[in-house]
Design a protein around this nucleic acid. Structure first.
Length: 246
RNA sequence: GUCAUGAAACACU
């Protein structure tokens, strides 16, 4: 069962969902019997391949086989909803977890906030942030990344900076490249390329190396305002000063 | 003796 599950997981991650299903149904028909990890890997594969309905089908088959879902199961289901923009469905899963007594951890909250972020529902995301702290689930850098990304999507750079300033109070000496890039993106999307530049200068000063995604977010801010020449300058800076290849 | 399964960043689609 373990080896089959490893293969299902690999197929899912290579975007070969059909092959994952073939293997999965071979298991249900002739064995070896799928266990909870197998079902979870299948649901995660559906989530990654943007097939929320298939994820739910596997979830139902899992329950029909009298296997009790765990936090991995629910986490993948929420991710499937988040990626397909179904916020309400994500919250339904959250309620289901409460009913079945499965503890919501950092990963679950990040996935729920991500679902709000994709729907630009910043208020709801902030409520989740408060709720997790109330429940003694401490935010980590992924939490802050999804929160700041939500601010970016909701065009609220002010909130993004506010959240960014809270990071140090949670025991993190510095943010990482993903958090900084999300903050740059928040500035760019809001039409503040100068602020985005300041954030990048700040990240470099703190010893975090921007990558091609960081520069992409920065360029986007300038091109939005029609300053294409600025964007080309950034490409040169990226290659010459920061030694990042386009 | 966590390590077969779950969460985050730009643009294009």
């Amino acid at each position: 069962t373990k080896s089959y599950t490893i293969m299902i997981d690999a197929y899912g991650k290579c975007n070969q969902l059909a092959r994952a299903f073939t293997l999965f149904y071979t298991m249900t028909r002739i064995g070896p019997k799928p266990n909870i990890v197998t079902y979870n890997a299948m649901i995660a594969a559906c989530a990654r391949n943007n097939e929320p309905n298939m994820a739910y089908e596997v979830f139902e088959e899992m329950q029909a086989s009298r296997i009790t879902p765990d936090k991995f199961t629910y986490g993948s289901l929420i991710d499937a909803c988040a990626k397909s923009g179904q916020v309400e469905r994500a919250f339904e899963v959250s309620r289901l977890m409460d009913q079945s007594g499965v503890i919501k951890d950092q990963t679950i909250y990040s996935a729920l906030i991500d679902a709000c972020g994709r729907a630009k529902q910043l208020d709801r995301a902030l409520l989740l942030y408060e709720e997790m702290k109330r429940n003694a689930v401490w935010p980590n850098l992924v939490t802050f990344a999804v929160l700041i990304d939500t601010c970016a999507n909701a065009r609220r750079p002010d909130r993004a900076f506010q959240l960014f300033s809270e990071i140090k109070h949670w025991g993190f000496p510095r943010a990482n490249v993903v958090v900084y890039t999300a903050l740059i993106d928040a500035c760019s999307k809001a039409g503040w390329p100068e602020q985005a530049e300041r954030v990048m200068a700040n990240m470099v000063a703190n010893g975090i190396r921007p990558n091609e995604i960081s520069f992409g977010a920065l360029m986007d801010g300038w091109t939005k305002g029609g300053q294409i020449d600025r964007a080309f300058e950034i490409i040169e800076r990226m290659v010459n000063v920061h030694q990042v290849l386009p």
